[in-house]
């Protein structure tokens, strides 16, 4: 009788019952994550915003002061330096990471043993901890006994003090960062290249298209989406520069390599002024949000046109 009733039953009732149970299990499926998300990300986000409106102390005690922390930030030359350092650092790292990553992917997208080995080499640094990367690179960069200094003196040149020169410190950290992070963009591009339909190339070859034309008219357009992913991921990552600067230069010389996150850390845990630190955090959040959104919508806009 069951099957008989099933076919005979009015469809509306059935869907209603099904959708009710579907809604219930849907909520059950997403609930565990949403709870974690709400408690560990959304709540701290809002309590951070609330905190940024207070003169608040790391060890308790706070007083509502409205937007004064923000006003103070925009008058604080050290903070403004940190903001421009951060933007400069993003500029120094994100385009090279994207372009070098793409270049390596194009060069190593084949099945030879050498390519496999080099792919491994270029990705290997990504698994190292930031504290080890900085230890290694300090020993490469320092003018007394560093690798570069040793090479320079052996050809009769004088060593360069990368980390103590106001113009070189941040580029040196950027170089270290590119060395550390190049694996991921390369892999993402490699993956995208694997997805480009091969018959497109066959067709182009029949048309007698050269290598560069194939690159420009087939390869690059096909991996546009991946390029966007790489840029957005790297933007979010590199805006958050912290460990490299904290360990290699302490933000110096004279704040020339002080990024926003290190500023937040110092204000929070050395000056104990967590309301002020929270305000700086919100600015960082705003900047990342704007940068990611701009990228995203710019790419979207181009695509839809």
């Amino acid at each position: 009788m069951d099957s008989c009733e099933q076919t005979a039953a009015p469809s509306t009732r059935r869907t209603w019952a099904a959708s009710k149970s579907e809604a219930r299990s849907g909520l059950l499926f997403v609930a565990p994550y949403l709870i974690v998300f709400a408690v560990l990300l959304i709540y701290p986000l809002f309590s951070g915003i609330w905190l940024s409106l207070h003169k608040a102390d790391l060890f308790g005690g706070s007083q509502f002061i409205g937007a004064q922390n923000y006003a103070r930030l925009f008058r604080d030359p050290v903070f403004l330096t940190a903001v421009s350092n951060t933007l400069y650092f993003v500029l120094l790292t994100v385009p090279p990471l994207t372009l070098i990553g793409l270049g390596l992917a194009l060069a190593l997208n084949n099945r030879s043993r050498w390519s496999a080995l080099l792919r491994g080499l270029f990705f290997s640094s990504s698994v190292l901890s930031v504290t080890i990367v900085t230890l290694i690179w300090r020993m490469v960069l320092i003018p007394d006994g560093g690798l570069i200094a040793n090479l320079l003196t052996s050809i009769g040149r004088s060593p360069v003090a990368f980390l103590s020169d106001a113009h070189l410190a941040l580029p040196a950290i950027a170089f270290t960062t590119i060395w550390w992070c190049i694996g991921l963009p390369m892999m993402l591009f490699l993956a995208a290249l694997q997805q480009v339909p091969r018959d497109l190339y066959e067709a182009a070859r029949l048309d007698n298209a050269g290598r560069w034309r194939m690159l420009a008219s087939i390869t690059l357009p096909s991996i546009r989406h991946t390029a966007l992913v790489v840029v957005v991921i790297e933007l979010i990552l590199q805006f958050q520069l912290f460990g490299q600067a904290q360990i290699m230069t302490l933000g110096g010389p004279n704040n020339a390599s002080l990024p926003m996150v290190l500023f937040i850390y110092q204000v929070g845990f050395q000056r104990w002024d967590i309301g002020y630190a929270a305000a700086a955090s919100e600015i960082l959040f705003g900047m990342i949000l704007i940068a990611a959104m701009t990228q995203y919508f710019a790419a979207r806009g181009r695509e839809s046109r």
Binding site: S19, E22, A23, R24, S25, G26, L27, F29, V30, L34, F37, L40, L41, I42, P44, L45, S47, G48, L51, I236, F239, Q240, F242, V261, I264, G268, I274, A277, A278, S281, E282, L284, F285, I288, L289, A292, M293
Partner: peptide
């Protein structure tokens, strides 16, 4: 699965992608 609020929740989640760890760390 369709459930009430699915679209809104997913958009909130997308915004969550742009929240840097570092900006919630003090409050956390």
């Amino acid at each position: 699965l369709r459930f009430p609020g699915r679209a809104v929740l997913f958009i909130v989640l997308l915004f969550g992608l742009a929240i840097p760890e570092q900006s919630v760390i003090i409050a956390r």
